[in-house]
Design a protein around this nucleic acid. Structure first.
Lengths: 194, 194
DNA sequence: GAAGGGAGAGAACGAGCGTTCTCCCGTGTT
DNA sequence: AACACGGGAGAACGCTCGTTCTCTCCCTTC
């Protein structure tokens, strides 16, 4: 078996297991069983479990943000693109194996114990925020809307993960619509102080 | 040492350790060392670690919601009370030992592996949502605002936990103000569909 | 004062798991 | 054809940790 193929199979199995059951309750032997990649090979590819975890989060991050961006790119109107983020969340939440945000879960599990994982989670969330910030800027809306919009999205991910329902996406979308409307109303520099 | 006292000390230590480092990376021996309660006594009080974890979440839930309610109760104006939720979040996020929402973290760590913990997390989040729903109703605002307001709060908890900053509370509060304003504008039966 | 019982300290036990090692087989090379 | 090499299966090792056991001591009670 080709090295590249073995790596992909290992990562596929690791992702399925880590995301579905959490990192700590999945053993390297489970990954081997699910992937068909022998333990020896596994340790050649990833010298320790921690590296497999990092590779899992890294690969998923690229794919997740790519899927989101592709979905949003299909819309033309700038404000529609912002709402599309929430439509995409709804689709994601509806997937059969959805079990919350992989990074929020990983942070809860390993954030206090693994600085590298914590940093990966922060980087992922930073990238998401930057992406939304770009959409807000493209729509000519005040930058101050970026924070609340991201919080709606994060809240939806967390709530959907815990309740197992896709409804939080619709609620977040409704909230976002109201924010966008008020953003238009009071559109300006976005620096209004309390 | 009195049984009740030993129980409190054990729970104090367990809460500090579980919340600070996660449940799985804290051993019963760590709890014993931090609490001064002997292992034998610990297992008399809590027949297994899982029960200690449940008692930790249970006691923290009561205290957390009590603190929130007490803070909010100090405000008179119904809409101010809703915003007070976010002010309280800001205070919480600013505490030295703040490390995110204990229930979100516990869900990420144990949600997939312990049905009882998952249920406790759901119950806690349900109670929070009901509480906010009550504030919204008292303010005469459309019930449809409850969802987005809760998502802002959840998003703030998650983001503050990951970034270690208290700023998400202010962003969530700003978002909530906009939602409340639009809620007043289009106040009605709150049953608008989209 | 002697006996019994509960409590603390910590050793012990057993399971799980990350990681490595051994053994064996198939393959490609000379 | 002989042999070295890489890879697979899975046993083995060592550590952690949940849980229990042992031993001793002190306090209570008759």
């Amino acid at each position: 078996m080709d090295t590249a193929v073995a790596r992909e199979r290992a990562l596929d199995a690791a992702e399925r297991l880590f995301y579905g059951r959490g990192v700590q309750s999945v053993g390297m032997d489970d990954v081997r069983g699910a992937s068909g990649v022998s333990l020896k090979r596994l340790y050649q590819l990833f010298p320790a479990k921690e590296q497999l975890v990092e590779a899992y989060l890294e690969r998923r991050d690229v794919r997740w943000r790519g899927r989101l961006a592709a979905y949003v790119a299909a819309r033309q109107e700038p404000r529609e693109r912002i709402l599309a983020v929430f439509d995409w969340l709804a689709e994601w939440f509806g997937e059969a194996d959805f079990r919350g945000c992989a990074w929020i879960n990983a942070y809860g599990e390993l954030g206090a114990v693994s600085g590298r994982v914590a940093e990966q989670v922060r980087a992922h969330k930073r990238a998401f925020r930057d992406y939304v910030g770009g959409l807000v800027a493209d729509a000519g809306l005040p930058a101050a809307l970026t924070g609340p919009l991201c919080l709606l999205a994060e809240g939806a991910m967390v709530t959907a993960g815990i309740t197992g329902s896709a409804e939080p996406a619709a609620q977040a979308r409704a909230g976002a619509r109201l924010l966008l409307a008020s953003g238009v109303t009071s559109a300006g520099d976005g620096s209004s102080r309390d």
